[in-house]
């Protein structure tokens, strides 16, 4: 099987499982393993509203139109789900990012959340801030960390594509007693997230955010599809290893 055929097969399996799980969801409650970060995130949003503080979301260098497009979309979904809850407050969440193409996505995500809550009076497009990315993304991290430090931030939620520059953002968040939830689709950033964050999202956990934060049956079906695909890959690896050994 070549790469093209494999891609079609994986897409077909993912689609079939998503739709099958959506139908099953109506008849039986499907089990989703608990993910600590998704339990903590709504609590942090509620605390931020009560204490009239902001939440800092950072999408890092996730970029629409690049290999991190879907990370950007998945991270934007988390921003939307939490901003919906935060939009009752006067304090607009802060969103920082380093890819200019993601800027309209971030602004639009916040706008939709405020429109949903019919609180457009408190929406500001400048709540999404772009910082240029230097050679190692560190200038972005320095700028975003300094902005978050000055903005009465309750928690920092770093989702999407980050390298080791996440350590700078994380250190600043911890130094200012902010909660920290972190994820990266790069192994370097993921390692930093594991060490620094109060709760880290690992690997594919970001992509099921919609299902865990009041998701629709179809989004919950996506979690089942992901689990099925994961087990298929595990089986594939085991079979290949046994074949190689025999």
């Amino acid at each position: 099987m070549n790469n093209t055929e494999l891609t079609w097969v994986l897409l077909a399996v993912a689609l079939a499982q998503t739709l099958a799980a959506r139908i099953l969801w109506r008849r039986a409650r499907l089990y989703h393993r608990p993910i600590a970060a998704y339990r903590v995130l709504p609590e942090q949003a509620a605390d931020a509203v009560e204490s009239s503080n902001r939440i800092h979301f950072s999408l890092g260098s996730s970029a629409l139109g690049a290999s991190s497009s879907l990370s950007a979309l998945a991270a934007a979904e988390v921003v939307y789900r939490l901003s919906e809850r935060l939009a009752v407050s006067r304090q607009t969440p802060l969103v920082t990012l380093s890819q200019p193409l993601t800027l309209p996505l971030a602004q639009d995500t916040l706008r939709r959340a405020y429109e949903f809550r019919q609180n457009m009076a408190h929406y500001r497009s400048s709540a999404a801030a772009w910082y240029p990315q230097g050679a190692r993304s560190l200038s972005f991290a320095a700028g975003a960390a300094s902005l978050a430090a000055d903005a009465d931030v309750h928690s920092s939620v770093l989702l999407g594509r980050f390298g080791v520059e996440m350590a700078l953002l994380g250190e600043s968040a911890l130094r200012h007693d902010q909660g920290l939830i972190a994820h990266s689709d790069l192994p370097e950033g993921q390692a930093v997230a594991f060490v620094q964050a109060d709760e880290a999202l690992l690997g594919e956990e970001l992509y099921v955010a919609a299902a865990y934060l009041n998701g629709s049956p179809l989004e919950r079906g996506g979690v089942v599809a992901l689990d099925v695909l994961r087990w298929l890959v595990i089986l594939g690896i085991i079979v290949a290893a046994v074949q190689a050994a025999v």
């Binding site: 689609l15 998503t18 879907l70 979309l73 639009d108 690997g203 992509y207 099921v208 695909l229």
Partner: peptide, 20 residues
């Protein structure tokens, strides 16, 4: 894991279920 995650999000986008 990230690859499989992007695949499931990709399917959601392709069937018009993404909210963005």
């Amino acid at each position: 894991g990230v690859g499989l995650g992007t695949l499931t999000v990709g399917v959601r986008v392709l069937i018009g279920q993404d909210r963005s």
